[in-house]
Design a binder for these strands. Structure first.
Length: 258
DNA sequence: ATGGCGGCTGAGAGCCGA
């Protein structure tokens, strides 16, 4: 299975880039975040013409997530964390190729100590409970998306500058670590144990040209699946192209089981 | 490094992202 995640920062603006990328990389699944499009405006037909179906949950102007796939989908599609009513559309999950695939757009948090920050930490705790249940049921799991957390010093271009700020504060990193403590594997880091690998660069400051980035998009896999990961890379080409998203796509490939 | 970018809405400038 070839599976990717990409925060596109408006699917309607980025649709040409997304269609180009699907054509060149041919992933089985692409999880996108920040679609910023209401469901009745979602580009179903354009994706279908490219050979992909989509399940999505969106809203006007903010948030919104979609799973774009050429695999057959089985079973129910989840469009929010179970047992919660979230006015912000931040999660879509489906059974794809025998794997429970969970696409997340974790809240940004705005600033340490803000209401948005508390909402982010609560959201991550609810995600933890849900993923624990999935794993307890013995299901193969991939959770991928924009986590808005840089887990380690090497995931931040200037850790001292970012210390105690949102995306890199202790409580956020601890919440991410608790997801790994479930047994999930950060496959991009596992494939690049020591390398500098960023997924986001600020539009300002010439950040991309200077490679002042953060690694805040992630793909986590359950242990047996992670053992079959044959590659995990960040494709920086779309970030370098015309009218880019500020995030680059993260692409991983898994060998079939036996 | 104060904000510089870019998307959104609604028709201004302000909000939000990270």
């Amino acid at each position: 299975m070839k599976i990717a995640t990409w925060n596109v920062n408006s699917l309607r603006v980025r649709l040409p880039q997304v269609l180009d990328w699907l054509a060149s990389e041919q992933p089985d699944v692409l999880a996108v975040q920040e679609t910023k499009v209401a469901d009745d405006q979602f580009p179903v037909m354009e994706l279908r013409a490219a050979g992909y179906e989509a399940v999505f949950t969106g809203e006007k102007a903010y948030n919104g997530v979609a799973l774009i796939t050429r695999l057959p989908m089985h079973g129910p599609v989840l469009k929010a964390l179970p047992g919660t009513v979230d006015p912000q559309q931040r999660l879509v999950a489906a059974e794809l190729g025998g794997v429970h695939v969970v696409n997340v757009y974790v809240p940004n948090g705005q600033a340490v100590g803000s209401d948005a920050y508390d909402y982010k930490l609560e959201w991550l705790e609810r995600l933890h409970r849900y993923l624990a249940d999935v794993l307890a049921a013995g299901r193969e799991l991939i959770v991928l998306g924009d986590f808005n957390v840089a887990p380690e010093d090497q995931d931040v271009y200037d850790p001292l500058l970012w210390a105690n700020t949102v995306l890199f504060s202790g409580p956020e990193r601890a919440a991410f670590r608790r997801l790994l403590d479930l047994g999930l594997v950060d496959v991009l880091r596992a494939q690049n144990p020591h390398g500098i690998v960023y997924t986001w660069w600020d539009y300002r400051f010439n950040a991309f040209r200077r490679n002042r980035g953060l690694r805040i998009d992630h793909l986590l896999a359950s242990p047996a699946l992670a053992a079959r990961c044959v590659s995990a890379t960040v494709d920086t080409r779309p970030r370098a192209a015309e009218r880019p998203s500020d995030h680059a796509p993260l692409l991983a490939e898994f060998a079939a089981s036996r």
